[in-house]
Simulated assay, not measured.
Amino acid sequence: MKKLILSAVILLGTMSIHANVLPVSEDAKTTVVIQSEYTEVAVDAVPAAVKTALQAAYPGAKLDKAFVNDKKEYKLEISVGDQKATVYSDVNGNWLKI
C-alpha cells in the first residue's frame, strides 16, 4: 500500500511540473485604418433613378447627404421622421448590400 501511495505522489508531482503558465503579453496593439473611398457630392448630382428608387423603397425619406465612389455606387445618408440610416445604391437605383 505504501508503494501505491508513493507512486501516486510521484506521478502527481511530475505532472504538476509541466503545468507552467505561459506569460501573456499585454503589449498587443490594434491599428485600424479607415479609408473612405466615397467622395461627397451635392444632393442634386444624384441620378434620377437613384432618387426614384429611394422614394419607392422609403416613402417620405429625406436625402441628407450623398457620396459616390469610382464604381458609380452611391452611399446615401437619409432620414425618415426621426430615424437616420445609410443605404447604398448603384447608378441605376439597384440597392447594394455592404
Rank of each mutant, 00 (worst) to 15 (best):
D64M: 12
T52V: 12
E40P: 01
Y58H: 13
V9Q: 03
H18V: 09
S36H: 12
D64K: 15
A61S: 13
A61I: 10
A19Q: 15
A49G: 07
S25F: 13
L6E: 00
V21Q: 12
V33M: 03
V41I: 15
P23N: 04
V43Q: 09
P23Y: 04
L54I: 06
K29W: 01
A49H: 04
K75S: 06
H18A: 15
N69S: 08
A48W: 03
T14P: 03
S36L: 13
V33H: 09
V32G: 01
S7G: 04
I5P: 02
P47M: 08
D44Y: 07
A49V: 08
A53F: 01
V46D: 04
P59I: 07
A49W: 03
K29P: 02
T30E: 15
P47I: 05
T31G: 04
A19Y: 11
L63W: 00
P47E: 02
E37T: 04
G60N: 08
K72L: 05
L6W: 14
L11N: 02
I34R: 10
A49C: 02
M15Q: 14
K65P: 07
N20M: 08
I17V: 08
E37C: 07
S25T: 13
S16K: 06
T31K: 15
A19V: 07
A66F: 00
P59F: 06
E26L: 12
V21L: 11
V50N: 01
L4F: 11
K75Y: 05
A57Q: 13
A19T: 08
E73W: 01
I5T: 10
V43W: 09
F67H: 04
S7L: 14
I34N: 12
K71T: 05
E37Q: 12
D44I: 09
K51Y: 02
L4P: 00
A57R: 08
T31D: 14
A49E: 09
I17N: 02
E73T: 07
I17S: 06
G60Q: 08
E37F: 10
A45D: 15
D64Q: 10
S16C: 14
I17P: 01
S7C: 10
E26W: 10
A49Y: 02
S16H: 12
H18Y: 15
I17R: 00
Y74K: 02
L12R: 04
V41E: 04
P47N: 08
P47W: 03
H18G: 08
K75T: 01
V24N: 05
I17T: 02
K62A: 11
V41T: 03
S7K: 05
Q35N: 11
D27I: 00
N69A: 09
V32L: 10
A42M: 07
V24F: 07
L4Y: 11
T39K: 14
T30S: 11
V43E: 06
Q55L: 15
V24L: 10
V50H: 03
A66P: 06
D44V: 12
L22N: 04
A45G: 03
V24Q: 06
K62S: 10
A53P: 06
P47R: 00
D27P: 03
L4I: 15
A19M: 11
V68S: 00
I10V: 15
T39D: 12
L12Y: 12
A56R: 09
A57Y: 07
L6Y: 11
V50K: 00
A8W: 02
D27N: 11
Y38V: 05
V9M: 14
Y58K: 04
A66R: 00
M15S: 10
A19W: 09
S16Q: 15
E37P: 02
A61P: 06
